[in-house]
Design a protein around this nucleic acid. Sequence first.
DNA 1: TCGAATTTTCAATATTTACTGAAAATTACG
DNA 2: CGTAATTTTCAGTAAATATTGAAAATTCGA
Lengths: 189, 189
Amino acid sequence: MNNLSPLTAQFVAHFGEMGSRWGINRTVGQIYALIFVSEKPLNADEIADALEFSRSNVSIGLKELQSWRLVKLKHNTGDRKEYFEAPQDVWEIFKSLAEERRRREIDPTLSMLRAALLETPANNADTYAQGRMKQMHELIELSSTWFDDVQRLSPETLARLMRMGSSVKTVLDMTDKLKVVGRKKATGE
Amino acid sequence: MNNLSPLTAQFVAHFGEMGSRWGINRTVGQIYALIFVSEKPLNADEIADALEFSRSNVSIGLKELQSWRLVKLKHNTGDRKEYFEAPQDVWEIFKSLAEERRRREIDPTLSMLRAALLETPANNADTYAQGRMKQMHELIELSSTWFDDVQRLSPETLARLMRMGSSVKTVLDMTDKLKVVGRKKATGE
DNA sequence: TCGAATTTTCAATATTTACTGAAAATTACG
DNA sequence: CGTAATTTTCAGTAAATATTGAAAATTCGA
């Protein structure tokens, strides 16, 4: 890798290796890593040069990253080249990733499950299978709705929630009690 | 696919196609799907037969599924064959999946980042890069600690939390107010 | 302990996916 | 417009991954 400091080289290499586990390929992982740690936006030639990939490979990789909304395109005045950068806010990155993953990995499964649940079971095995599919559907639906909701929270609220960790239970219990008290008051019980 | 009802065939095929997006391969996805909707545990021959895979392929696939803790091995008395089933509780499945993913996809990255953050930056670019890595590290660490915590909640509490969705903010705000009140009381303010 | 039943390994092969260079398409500036 | 700069496409090739059948290893009951 051309002209990369050991620090960056290490980071880039790791993303390359992990790429396959993350569902992207080595090239795409490395390109992203490089963009992520660069202070200035990079153009495709710079990336191809630094990573020693063919120009066309970089082009494909950048398209892929754009489809994941992980890089943003920037145009510099007086320069026709396209420059790419990663969003500054890591929360934003996290959200794009989650949304996109959901769109690609979760939603199609939900559709399939919904369709399967509408079918008339042909025998006992089918009835059992449909029951299992229902469980799966409910769990996925619940978690993804929840994720939608959480995503709409402000970063601060979200951070607060996260910092609470499992003590969230205490808060929920507290709330339940308050609700009961409120109800009693309201009904003059 | 031998002897599979259309309903199951559809489900199995979907898991096969999605497999690649989920980071497992087609075979493994299909095997899992089949086991998941089966009322009785299945042995490798039954799976190979139903899915028309070679016996060895099934063997490899089952090993993979075991490494993800997605299937459990069962021995039937008077039968030397190994039978496989998926855990009944879909929550449990979800947790195994999350844990295993974390172990494979998150933890190695955290280690790499920790190591990188200890290095002495060689120049300005490195300093910037390290800043970015720090942001990434903090986000990942926060979300995974949080996930640990959440995982420890009882399914009921968790379900409650999920059902609340974004109204969780109201609860947090409420709690903050209560804390303030509590403090005032305590200090006689 | 022997041997049939069963599972696992592994080298060969097939399939899929990634990568390249060259050519085509697009862009925007004079 | 025309053209040079730039990006994209694509057919061919390389590399990685998945799949198989056969052979080896393991398991467990007689």
